[in-house]
Design a protein around this nucleic acid. Structure first.
Ligand SMILES: [Mn+2]
Ligand SMILES: [Mn+2]
Ligand SMILES: [Mn+2]
Ligand SMILES: [Mn+2]
Lengths: 146, 146
DNA sequence: ACTCAAACTTAGCATACACTAACTTTTATC
DNA sequence: GATAAAAGTTAGTGTATGCTAAGTTTGAGT
């Protein structure tokens, strides 16, 4: 220990959990963007700013700002007035996000949640499920209906 | 319709889901703070800035800023250099948050997720489960083990 | 009552994410 | 190919959330 670290160890664990949630929120926007970009490219051949804005419910200007951050972080490439492409890193994140999102959504559906709620809730929950929880969801999905 | 609203209806629904998630994130910090304040008061008799900072993993200064926002929003009261109290509204939010949080955590445990993961993941998930999903979790918890 | 450490506050800064308004570029249409 | 609409960009603004560093207040121990 570099310094006196003699606080309540329960407080410490509690704090670490919150730090985890804060980290998840930092990657959340990136995950949703690359996932959507991949879907748009797959469905329509390209990902454009207007389309992203339309599907995300934000303005063009906001999408532009975010795309610049994603580019800075090596997830996408884009040239002025052109459509947006994923880097290898971006494609990897998109693929992992898509799979995890699908499991969360399918799990909620299997639990008996209605379709629209499953879509809405999974959009937020997906960013907060660790691998262990995803595994538990998978196990549940694999189980034959009782 | 006030203007031409002739975009892909699927995009529109998709966008609404994201708006939901953004709303959840706006209330998230408030929920975690009042829940923790209630717990500290219950356990130690009062809620102090240092304690909150310790349990949340942020600095005193950050807690101070947030407490000011919560006060502005009518969830807590506090006088300079004194401990923090919940308003009726704050107590109500704390109570609702606590209940929902417990159900999410217990649900993950019942699914077979290990204790530390359940604590960590539920800290993020709790803010993204709608009433319908909470009901589904409850049903699962009520069901006798297969 | 003094002293000093702990607690708290304030000031100043930074980043993320959102917006509107104004401007530029591209592209579709004639 | 000129023109208008659509798409994209930029500038400027605001809030939430975090930080560090510097100051103030409180309260505990002597
Ligand atoms: Mn999402
Ligand atoms: Mn909680
Ligand atoms: Mn939480
Ligand atoms: Mn979240």
């Amino acid at each position: 220990m570099t310094a006196a670290d003699d606080r309540d160890p329960e407080a410490k664990r509690h704090a670490e959990r919150f730090q985890r949630v804060r980290e998840a929120h930092q990657t959340e926007v990136a995950e949703d963007y690359v996932e959507l970009i991949a879907q748009l490219i797959e469905k329509t051949g390209e990902a454009r700013v207007v389309e992203l804005a339309d599907w995300l419910g934000v303005t063009n200007a906001t999408v532009n700002n975010t795309i610049q951050r994603l580019q800075r972080d090596g997830l996408v490439t884009s040239k002025p007035y052109r459509s947006i492409f994923l880097t290898d890193k971006g494609r990897g994140l998109a693929e992992a996000s898509r799979r995890r999102h699908e499991i969360v959504r399918d799990f909620l559906l299997a639990l008996g949640v209605d379709s629209e709620t499953a879509e809405t809730d999974s959009e937020g929950i997906e960013h907060h499920v660790s691998d262990a929880t995803v595994q538990a969801f998978r196990r549940f999905l694999a189980k034959p209906k009782s």
